[in-house]
Design a protein around this nucleic acid. Sequence first.
DNA 1: TTCGTCATGTAATGGGTTACATGATTAC
DNA 2: GTAATCATGTAACCCATTACATGACGAA
Lengths: 222, 222
Amino acid sequence: MSRRSGVLEFAVLGLLRESPMHGYELRKRLNTSLGVFRAFSYGTLYPCLKTLVANGWLIEEPGSAPKDAPPAATLAGRRAKIVYRLTAEGKERFEELLSQTGPDAWEDEHFGVRFAFFGQTSRDVRMRVLEGRRSRLEERLDKMRASLARTRERLDDYTLELQRHGMESVEREVRWLNELIESERAGRDQRRPAEQDTSEDTGGLPRHRGSTRPDPSDDTDK
Amino acid sequence: MSRRSGVLEFAVLGLLRESPMHGYELRKRLNTSLGVFRAFSYGTLYPCLKTLVANGWLIEEPGSAPKDAPPAATLAGRRAKIVYRLTAEGKERFEELLSQTGPDAWEDEHFGVRFAFFGQTSRDVRMRVLEGRRSRLEERLDKMRASLARTRERLDDYTLELQRHGMESVEREVRWLNELIESERAGRDQRRPAEQDTSEDTGGLPRHRGSTRPDPSDDTDK
DNA sequence: TTCGTCATGTAATGGGTTACATGATTAC
DNA sequence: GTAATCATGTAACCCATTACATGACGAA
């Protein structure tokens, strides 16, 4: 019981499913791995962890070394205070959340996290979420176009420019979704011709290369 | 006194500076004119209006017809309950807010509204806000690139794609800002060659055309 | 020994939504 | 006359941040 946001709960369960972690590290992962979509502070995270423990979805363990690290290598056995590990019920709970495709799933606040865990999501759910998001954005576009048509002449240049840029952003996301949806479909069809069953269920992704070049800098946290 | 958000206060003062309005209409304008950037509910707006009145920045007037409408024309003299009008102090307050260029001005929550009222903003403030925003985004890009460089191999395709798309969005906004900044500068220089003083202070804007075609549909409000 | 980062937490506060209550006016 | 929309408001709640308090550990 006890709702506790949704987004955070989902993200925490998802990250911990991959491997146990303590709060501090969890927060860093939250604020980077999940793209630009969300940032949480300790004041949000720690209380949330507690309620998840209370729900029986996590257990606290006194941590020593971050695991999977050679004795005194990588981070020199940094002592972690409390390591959170997903319980069986927690795993179940996450699975349940993963399979949900309620209208929430494609709203702004949720879509990002949902997408971040698409790797663990079944293809049909992925499709429903992507398509849901797309039509959500399309109806938003309709509204914007309509309101713009109604008001364009009494708006000054800057307001107009703002609106234009806003619309273009949305249009751009729609195009992105189109690509994704298409390649998900292609991924499904792909299986037909050769009937090969490599891996298990990996849908296709466009496969861009990021324009990233190395550039040291530390993370958020003011 | 009494802080009350900032964004809403600013937007309300700004909209009312153009013309008096009642709350209901004000909210619609807020949720459309200001682009995709913000949406407020009555539960937020009305209490805010009250505190603005308490601060002496607005006065309530019993409204009859929305003004500037021929007797029984346009909207058939819709009876408005309470019309809010900006006081002299309110105007002053707005002016003061307009001229502020604190780091807040270019954060996500504020930038949109600030931009929406660029029409009333002096060119140097506009420049500072645009440039502030740009460097804000650029440092964000640096962080994203850095974190991506650190973690790229242990991220799955979807997370990577999410990150990539996020970065591209930011890069796109930077390009947009570059164009705006450039045309602001051009606007300033423009004056040199001919020394013409048409109008007063209108900076240059790129002047795109929107892709809008008429398409009836009503506004938000669930 | 002091500073920076790792690490965990809590109380106060803020900013906002939801759901509800109420009623006038217009369009059918 | 009844449904939709216009119009104003409030109380309960929610989600999250800020600021603070505490302390261990490693490096200079």
